[in-house]
Write a protein that binds this DNA or RNA. Structure first.
Lengths: 141, 141
DNA sequence: CCTTGACCTTCCAGTGACTGGAGGCCCCGT
DNA sequence: ACGGGGCCTCCAGTCACTGGAAGGTCAAGG
């Protein structure tokens, strides 16, 4: 298969697949014309990567997960730990976003949104350097 | 005030403040020694920016919001609209994360996490190119 | 055989919002 | 005079791609 075929079958853009080769996630063979040639196993790996990325795993996690996927002697505990840590990070992010959302929602509702210049949103931003999102702030990103 | 003073007072790292000058958000004066000199107004702007960033507004939104903040003739409707759009984006992101979280949580609970190699997490990733997060996937970021 | 167009290649640069570090000047206290 | 902290600029790196330019390859149609 050429890159276009695996792109269609995995749902990943060709650019991304080339990038994954660049950073050593996959190692497709090359034909005499220089074209990448993908075996079924390569396709499986790309599908796996697409799935892992869709669940928000970092590329680094993907690298580890892919190695475990290929390792018949793995222990599922290793996989579970990575997934569990990622889950905790997702929870952190959700909590942070919800905190932002709460503040913003309150401000939006307090703002008249008319032709006058008075605006609680701007007033709040001008006053608060650190509000209720302060604790989650440093963990942003 | 020097950069260290406004950094302490706004909570923003000095590096970030220099960066904000670079991209034209603030324009502190310079002393004869080349040091940035920040007036009270500059400090207010930095505090404002810190607040807006803490609520997750992009730098571009911050630029607009800062202009509105400075504009005595603004209409609060403009501010409200920006904030409302941002709120909607936060909601999108939360929905996407919750979808990821749901899948991941299900898989983590299904995984024994012992010394055996059988792992529903890996199996799921290997099978599903597009799962229930598919619709929110393209909106990632 | 030639052309057309889809497909493939590499390489370079840009995204957002910083952050780290090198190398060097400036200022204050002792 | 010197030490230490603060300030300066500039360059490079982060993360995970994405866009685009310039050019080689292949299959089909005329």
């Amino acid at each position: 298969m050429n890159i276009g075929d695996v792109s269609r079958r995995s749902g990943l853009p060709a650019k991304t697949i080339r990038y994954y080769e660049d950073i050593g996630l996959i190692r497709p063979k090359r034909g005499d014309n220089g074209y990448r040639h993908f075996a079924e196993r390569d396709l499986h790996m790309l599908v796996f990567l697409a799935g892992a990325r869709a669940l928000g795993f970092t590329i680094d996690d993907c690298r580890t997960l892919l190695a475990l996927y290929e390792d018949q002697g793995r222990e599922s505990a290793q996989v579970k730990q990575i997934a569990g840590e990622h889950l905790a990070q997702i929870d952190d992010k959700i909590a942070q976003l919800r905190s932002m959302r709460a503040t913003l929602d309150r401000l939006v509702h307090a703002c008249a949104g008319d032709h006058r210049p008075d605006c609680p949103i701007l007033e709040n931003l001008a006053q608060d350097a650190s509000d209720e999102t302060a604790d989650t702030k440093e963990r942003a990103r």
